[in-house]
Design a protein around this nucleic acid. Sequence first.
DNA 1: TACCTTCCTTAGCGAACAGTACAAAAAAGG
DNA 2: CCTTTTTTGTACTGTTCGCTAAGGAAGGTA
Lengths: 197, 197
Amino acid sequence: MARGRPRTFDRAAALRQATMLFWQYGYEGTSVAELTKRMGINAPSLYSAFGDKRALFDEVVETYGQSFGSFVAVALQEEATAREAFARVLREAAAVYTDPEHPAGCLVISATTNVSPKDDDVADAMRELRRSNLDGFRERVETDVAAGRLPAGTDAHALAVYYATVVQGMSQQARDGASAADLAAVAELAMASWPAG
Amino acid sequence: MARGRPRTFDRAAALRQATMLFWQYGYEGTSVAELTKRMGINAPSLYSAFGDKRALFDEVVETYGQSFGSFVAVALQEEATAREAFARVLREAAAVYTDPEHPAGCLVISATTNVSPKDDDVADAMRELRRSNLDGFRERVETDVAAGRLPAGTDAHALAVYYATVVQGMSQQARDGASAADLAAVAELAMASWPAG
DNA sequence: TACCTTCCTTAGCGAACAGTACAAAAAAGG
DNA sequence: CCTTTTTTGTACTGTTCGCTAAGGAAGGTA
């Protein structure tokens, strides 16, 4: 089995290199020429292995969500209370977004902020992803309201939007050069807005 | 005086149209072809009147700062206390960033989030602009600390980074479709983190 | 009227964009 | 061995990018 000439490059490694580029420069800011150079392959190999630029980006976003971006869902699920969950999300975001091992900030938040009209569909897909993350925030708050850990009148939507705003702002701050300590302080301050028990 | 053929288009109006495009699609996401179409002029008229794409963008950013973006500096200066100043900044940001009369969010925050390496200088200039805005935040806090309106141990830098983070997050939320009411609620929640007098 | 300066239109420049045709190369199956 | 299948590198496609040369058009000045 496995007929034909085997590929000579590591597909997963190439995908990681593509992730770093899209993370740093965004979808349109990353050219296929830069991708092939960084991935160490020629254009036909890229198109044969990944489809086209859009399909490669989609795959990058998916693996990103399962690795660098997974801490959000994990924190929301593992912590006993919504308060602890959001505190952990912010704390870990401060660390991940400033980790010098990879580009700053969050790829999902920053990679399609500026796109020309021809790539509106890519931006829409990323917006939808962020919206589903926002829903995850809201549902976590609603769970605690239902369990009596938060006042019955708590505005789950407003709280979710607030913490999504802080996370997205932290991503931008990280890309502007804010330090891990800066963002950790932001996380602390943001938790001061948590509703009184 | 004013020799030669007078230009047949309104330069200020054309600049406003360019502002709307850069605001919506960002620096690289806006092509010169789209600009000339929206401004109602041909490419040579654009280059003659504004220099090149970069110079046009710089002029857009400058006039933006004197109009749509001026509310920040005004609030910081006019309000009697830092607390009232930041509350007003957030409240007005919620309104301005969602005003249907123009693209959502803040041009300075969002127009150069994704740029290819060849336009790093443009992104750097915008980053510098945001950094000076952050300095304005910090100085406003320091003023109130010096005047005794805030505790002597107040971390002005941390507070400035926090509110800058919220403002930048609000811009992104607005671009993702958040309503004025959503962002007004964010502004309220963010002010709950203000240090106790 | 005859200029003189500046603007506008047309057309196109070289470079970079995403994507591909083609044939040599390298493996497995017969 | 030969055929089949897939990957490889080279070279290239058409399109769009930012930008401009050239010349006619339209105003003010004399």
